[in-house]
């Protein structure tokens, strides 16, 4: 869990304390992981806060014909063109029932020096959890291939799926998904 270990850097902590009012601190003995949690479908996911560049309200997404189905299109991020991925499709979830459209967000992350956005149904909160409450992923997690699940965090009342962004956005994996989607058709 090396990626999120860096998230406990003091400066990052200070920055996020200002950034959010809903900062939840959990009791812990071990390392602190600082995460952003969001909801896609019925699951709650979390990614390290340091990889998040910004969170935007839904904006006009330009469809790119003949790109993989889970690519929603491209957006204009202050003069830069970046691709946006539909996480529902990426996870093979059913489309529709995205909840309140007003809550939809585009999370822009930087992974391996690439900037990419993905859509989520709703962003929950910034939270800090101890690394000891994160367990390795079970072999299969609710419809999501466990490849890009870093671990599962057990909170008091809910489960948090920690994502490995690098694997989520790696090209080789995407081609596999692309193939899978095509053959399914």
């Amino acid at each position: 869990m090396s990626t999120s270990a860096t998230a406990t850097a003091p400066s990052a902590q200070a920055a996020t304390e200002n950034a959010t009012q809903r900062d939840t601190v959990r009791q812990t003995d071990g390392e602190l992981l600082q995460l952003v949690s969001f909801v896609v479908g019925n699951e709650e996911f979390a990614i390290p806060i340091l990889s998040v560049q910004e969170i935007n309200r839904m904006m006009q997404i330009t469809r790119v014909p003949q790109s993989p189905p889970f690519i929603e299109g491209v957006i204009n991020l202050r003069g830069k063109i970046i691709p946006v991925m539909d996480l529902r499709k990426r996870f093979g979830m059913k489309a529709g029932d995205a909840g309140n459209d007003n809550d939809n967000r585009i999370i822009v992350v930087e992974v391996a020096s690439r900037v990419i956005g993905f859509t989520v149904d709703r962003v929950n909160e910034v939270l800090r959890i101890g690394s000891e409450i994160v367990e390795p992923p079970p072999s299969m997690v609710a419809g999501v291939e466990s490849d890009y699940v870093e671990g599962v965090g057990k909170l008091d009342d809910r489960l948090l799926i920690l994502l490995n962004l690098e694997r989520l956005f790696s090209g080789a994996d995407l081609q596999k998904v692309d193939q899978a989607v095509k053959t399914a058709k």
């Binding site: 006009q60 330009t62 790119v64 014909p65 003949q66 790109s67 993989p68 690519i71 299109g73 491209v74 957006i75 204009n76 003069g79 830069k80 063109i81 970046i82 691709p83 991925m85 690439r114 990419i116 090209g171 995407l174």
Partner: peptide, 27 residues
């Protein structure tokens, strides 16, 4: 011209993207 050089959007018959007057993206 802004390049479409990420590996996700390179498949189609596009040489790049541009930003229109209204701020939206056109291919």
């Amino acid at each position: 011209i802004k390049p479409l050089d990420d590996e996700y959007t390179t498949g189609g018959p596009f040489s790049g993207a541009t930003i229109r007057e209204d701020g939206d993206v056109s291919l």
